[in-house]
Design a binder for these strands. Structure first.
Lengths: 235, 235
DNA sequence: TACTGTGAAAGAATTCACAGCA
DNA sequence: TGCTGTGAATTCTTTCACAGTA
């Protein structure tokens, strides 16, 4: 794995913050491409992605030198390079566990099937849902989890179950060799080293918004609130 | 707004990274409370929240000194203090725009109605959905957006529409005075200063997972891939 | 004694500002 | 000339390690 070549690039060390923004750039680039734009400056692309141009250039510099001074970036080429860096030039097989409203929303999500991700399986514990066809896939019973993961070569598991079931499901997918988990259940999953978990959590996002909203309005009150606590506790 | 009192606390300056973790601590604390635990050490709480204890203590120190040396934190009191800091001791009125599977999932989300958030309205552009009752609320037509925001005093708008509609919906809610937006549409919203937007994006999360998954497997290949690009472009 | 709270050190991420190149 | 790519400066975040205290 040390076969290197001419291209000078920071050896396998893209900052996490940069990785998190690459998908945003990619989306902006696709949108430019759809509008027939072939070349874009860092200033324009940054605006489309909602960041400042210095940050964008620094981020892209971690991938290599894919721009042209005095001109900008070629949209198609940059799409390819970012896709490659993110691993989207290969297909990742995804299984969704939990087919409530959220699971359905995820299954039906378009951008999913399109670039780099193949939804292979939908699983649920509720026997009444088994056999139902959603987004072209038959829902299977959770009992088949291990079999399905092995047969399809699932590498990313999306957990969209109720909170109480999430840890057990997680343990099972991890035991089956899955090392990437996207968790929608409102619970902190514990996993062994080497397994990546990302969490998407509506209520956390709302709470962060509430914090800022409150701040705009003047912040939490002082001693008055201290009194309210005493009352609240004594109810 | 400069009436201060004894409690020494960094004057209105809680780091953003800390704010983003407070909801996680809060959830962990509620879970401890449900299990009848009255007191917790930074070590235990940190484990439950999936962070290390130094970080937890530093985070909490930004709110004030709510622990007891040699003992730990009183669960109930800490819940109250964090809730207050996040602005959850008051109710925030939320409207969801877009009632597809995702909107339904959000509407049905339990933790929502419970702590600090009141779902006041569901809106959709599709006349066939108008009048349908979801989670106890009648879906209204998007034409009524401005009226609904004013009447209910909506302060947080959740955008769960298709991407093409999202910016227009966003413009309208902002024009109606909403300054906090939670966006589920896969698009960068542009808003004036003073408006907070948070984004939840499935495909970005998947892409970040794919990056790490690829890394585990050995990273993007070198010159071989460079050739593949040429072929891909020439299709 | 067993914990919290916090300065100080280390590490990451962002921004500045400009050299260098097409 | 007009842009990218990047060192250097700055700011933010995490971690260390221990003084202080119930």
């Amino acid at each position: 794995m040390t076969r290197r070549q001419n291209r000078s690039r920071a050896e396998r060390g893209i900052p996490e913050a940069t990785v998190a923004r690459l998908p945003v750039y990619l989306r902006a680039l696709h949108s430019l491409q759809d509008r027939g734009i072939a070349t874009v400056s860092s200033e324009e692309l940054a605006a489309a992605a909602g960041v400042n141009s210095a940050k964008l250039r620094k981020d892209l510099s971690h991938l290599g030198s894919y721009g042209t001074r005095g001109v900008g970036y070629e949209v198609e080429y940059l799409i390819y390079q970012i896709s490659r860096e993110l691993g989207l030039t290969q297909d990742w097989v995804v299984a969704i566990i939990g087919v409530g409203n959220l699971g359905r929303a995820l299954a039906g999500y378009g951008g999913f099937a399109s670039r780099g991700f193949r939804m292979a399986s939908l699983l649920d514990a509720d026997p009444r849902l088994v056999g139902e066809r959603i987004a072209g896939i038959d829902v299977e019973h959770i009992d088949r989890l291990e079999t399905v993961i092995a047969e399809h070569g699932v590498s990313i598991a999306v957990i969209a179950t109720p909170a109480v079931a999430a840890q057990e499901v997680c343990d099972r997918v991890v035991a089956s060799g899955v090392t990437s988990v996207l968790n929608f259940a409102p619970i902190v999953l514990s996993v062994p080293d080497g397994v990546d978990v990302r969490k998407v959590d509506l209520s956390i996002e709302l709470q962060i918004l509430a914090f800022h909203e409150q701040r705009k309005a003047g912040g939490p009150m002082g001693e008055q609130v201290e009194r309210e606590y005493v009352e609240a506790v004594e109810l």
